[in-house]
Amino acid sequence: MKIKLNIWKQANAKAKGKFEKYELDGVDEEMSFLEMLDSLNEKLIKEGKEPVAYEHDCHEAICGSCSLYINGRPHGPGDVIATCQMHMRSFKDGETITVEPWRAKSFPVLKDLIVDRDAFDKLMAAGGFISIDAGQAPDANANLVSKIDADKAFDAAACIGCGACVAACKNSSAMLFVSAKVSQLALLPQGKIEAKRRALNMVAKMDELGFGSCTNTGACEAECPKGIGIDFIAKLNREYLCASFTEAE
């Protein structure tokens, strides 16, 4: 098949970017989207042109590197899918595919389709952990955890930190990301001890980093490659309200 591509090109963080048009022939529908981009790049390099910079690594929808906004959706067409698992059979012959980087103030573009997601790391450093040093751990079975809570905590912990939630949200809100971590740890007995502090610190950091606020559109949930639900956002709201009213500052 033959496709037309309309891809955001930007030399570096300070440069002004623009869309560049490409045409690619001989695209196999069994190709993954990333392999299609690879073959475009091979072609561009051979033609002496600048290849398109984009991020990818594991190709198993688990590392969270890919960050492509394709035809108006993070990770492209399809639900509960990351870009790396999307294949060209999802597109039609002759179709124009527009590829953009994640757009958010907190995720500045570094080059072409590569954005800086350091803000997520900063959020984690602000409280996405349980304060325990190596060697201090009690026996793993000393704290019993109900299977329901453990499974629910896992559902939240499945987040791959790709940032599709922020990219999908019209407010560039990081609430799904933060809520997943806060919920995961608040659901487990070992995480409850500093649950309030965690919620307060992570939300404060989220606001500081310039993410928007949640207006409950549910776009994040619809685009999350791991299907993380916005019921965790309700839980974060609950945890945060409760912490704000009870935790001494």
Partner: peptide, 22 residues
Amino acid sequence: SNIIDQLTAQGVPFAREYGGTL
């Protein structure tokens, strides 16, 4: 064995039995 203790204490949601044990 210590690894499992450490990871659990860090909040790794290992699969559990209905009784709450790993």
